[in-house]
């Protein structure tokens, strides 16, 4: 798979930077947990003072447990934002970026089929996000003890898998936007748009029972609503993320094999 190998070879430095950034952010947030005193502290009381809707919207209702705290402060916020940023950058570059810079034309004039190019680049993104997922999982396992988070190993794998599949769907949205339009702006917009929409639907859906239907439409909610870090695997939710990513990739393949490549 030469295109896959090439993508990974060109992007390994970027991958390293993303991994370092994610681990640094995670370490910073999680290191506060012991000093907040965990479940025994006044933090739970403080949360009780806040309006219930707000608490649910930012996912702070479980913040007094290690798993809840990690979910709310990292996976629910900056971990999602950084993961989305990496996914959008890679998804945009995969087709639209290369097309706008004019490099795609030359690669496609070689014996590389369009479907092969899109598929291998999607696989390259999946590989990179999986590497980040593994790094995050290992970092989380390593931090669990020192920061008194008391996380379960299987649950760590479940939450990082959810993170990988969530960010991968967003990457596929960007890739699809680019494969359909050939425009970097469109690719960026579609990917970032899905990320924002997923986050907002989740936040609004969590606020009240009236809005609960929104959770059913939010990939963010599919990844985290059943609290993988506290409860473990939920394969139905993960299946939804896989289905979304697959559908986006299918549209990308379908359109890209039929249209002109811009110079």
């Amino acid at each position: 798979m030469p295109v896959l190998v090439q993508s990974l070879r060109v992007g390994w430095k970027g991958l390293l930077v993303w991994a370092l950034a994610l681990v640094a952010v995670m370490a910073m947030y999680l290191s506060f947990y012991p000093s907040l005193g965990g479940a025994a502290s006044g933090m739970a009381d403080m949360i009780d003072q806040l309006p219930e809707g707000v608490v649910k919207a930012i996912g702070y209702d479980q913040i007094a447990t290690g798993a809840g705290y990690t979910q709310s402060t990292f996976f629910g916020l900056l971990g999602f934002v950084l993961g989305t940023a990496a996914a959008v950058v890679w998804g945009t570059r995969a087709v639209a970026g290369d097309e706008e810079s004019g490099m795609l034309e030359l690669t496609l004039a070689h014996p590389v089929s369009r479907a092969q190019l899109v598929a291998e680049r999607a696989l390259a993104i999946f590989t990179r996000l999986s590497v980040l997922g593994v790094v995050l999982g290992l970092a989380l396992a390593a931090m669990s003890g020192p920061f008194e988070l008391e996380l379960n190993g299987t649950h760590i794998v479940a939450v990082t898998t959810a993170w990988v599949l969530l960010t991968f769907s967003i990457a596929m949205a960007s890739l699809m936007g680019g494969a359909v339009s050939g425009s970097r702006t469109v690719a960026l917009g579609v990917g970032a748009g899905l990320g924002v929409l997923a986050f907002l639907l989740n936040a609004l859906g969590a606020q009240s029972e009236q809005n609960e239907w929104m959770l059913g439409l939010s990939p963010f909610a599919w990844a985290y609503r059943n609290r993988p870090l506290a409860e473990g695997w939920n394969f139905a939710d993960l299946g939804l993320l896989v289905a979304l990513a697959t559908a986006l990739l299918a549209v990308a393949l379908l359109v890209f094999t039929r249209r002109d490549v811009r110079s």
Partner: peptide, 18 residues
């Protein structure tokens, strides 16, 4: 398809490299 392009050498008018 790609088998045919394997028999062609193509130099684009505007070359872009990585």
């Amino acid at each position: 398809g790609k088998e045919l392009r394997g028999r062609i050498g193509y130099l684009p008018g505007e070359l872009h490299v990585e």
